[in-house]
Design a protein around this nucleic acid. Structure first.
Lengths: 133, 133
DNA sequence: CTTGATCTTCCAGTGACTGGAAGCCCTATA
DNA sequence: TATAGGGCTTCCAGTCACTGGAAGATCAAG
C-alpha cells in the first residue's frame, strides 16, 4: 500500500513516516515501480507501535530500543521494564517541576488585583521583590 | 561591565545573553572601545527578570510581553494576570497529559515481571493488545 | 485531456538554547 | 618582551521531533 494509506491506517502522518525513515527509526520502505513507497500490514503494525509509544512520551531513541526489544524474542522483560521505569522517572521530574511553577504562579496570580491599576505582584516578583507567603 | 560579569551576576550564561540579543528579547548592548558588549546594573536586573520568568516556564515570547508590561508604568495589572493565567492553563494541560502517561506506564510496569523471561505486557500493549485493568 | 489528489525530494523553520571553531583582545608572569 | 591563558567576538551546526512548503512526477476519474 502507498504511504497515504499507511498513514491513515496507522494514524502516523505521511510526512512523519518519511521522517522516521530518514532518522532510521523504521527501515527504508521498498518501492513500487513508480518509485512510491510500498507498505505492508506489518509496517502499519510497526507504525502503530511507534505511535503508541510516542503517545506515552517515549523519545524516538527509546522507541527504537523498545522496537528492538519487541523484535528480539529472546529479550528479558527486565530490559523493557527498565526503559519504562526510567521514563516514568523523567515524567515524575517533569511533573514536579511543573507543579512547582504552577504553585508559584497561582500564588502570585491570587495576589494580583487584575484590574486597571498598574500595581502587580507578578511583575514585582519577577523584578526580584520577595512576595509574602 | 563585560558579558562574563553580567552572566555571573544574573545567572544567565553569556551564550544565552547573546542569544537573547539575537532574537530581540533584549536590546543590542552598547559596545566598549574594543568591541566588547557593555552591560549596566539595569541590564543585569533585566536579565534576572528574564531568568525568573523563564524559570516559571514562560516562553520567550511571553517574557517579551511581561518585560514590556513591566516597563509600561501605565499597564493594567489585568494584562499581566491574563498572561500568567494563560500560562497556568498550559501548565495544567501539560501536567494532565504527563499524569495520564504516568498512570498508563505504572499500570503496565506493575504487570511486567521484570525478569529474564521475554513475556512482557508493556510490549504487548504497545503492539496493540488491550491490557486488563 | 485535464483536473486534482497524491506521491517524490529537498530545504527551511519551530523553541530555546548549546557546542565548537577561528580569531582578536587583555593581563600576568618568566 | 615573549608568551600563555582566559575571555571576548562572530558564525555555523546540532539538539528534538516534527511540520510546512516548493517544485516536479504520477495516477485515477470525469
Amino acid at each position: 500500500m502507498k504511504i497515504g494509506d499507511a498513514a491513515k491506517q496507522s494514524g502516523v502522518p505521511a510526512k512523519t513516516i518519511r521522517y522516521y525513515e530518514s532518522v532510521g527509526l523504521i527501515e527504508a520502505a521498498t518501492r513500487q515501480d513508480n518509485g512510491y513507497r510500498d507498505y505492508s500490514e506489518t509496517d502499519v503494525h510497526t507504525l502503530r507501535f511507534i505511535s503508541r509509544a510516542r503517545g506515552l512520551g517515549f523519545t524516538v531513541k527509546d522507541v527504537a530500543m523498545l522496537l528492538a526489544l519487541y523484535r528480539d524474542s529472546s529479550r528479558a522483560s527486565a530490559d523493557v521494564k527498565a526503559v519504562a521505569a526510567r521514563h516514568v522517572d523523567r515524567i515524575d521530574e517533569k511533573i514536579a517541576e511543573l507543579q512547582s511553577m504552577r504553585q508559584t504562579l497561582l500564588h502570585l496570580i491570587d495576589r494580583c488585583h487584575g484590574d486597571d491599576r498598574p500595581d502587580c505582584p507578578i511583575l514585582a516578583d519577577l523584578a526580584g521583590a520577595r512576595v509574602s507567603a
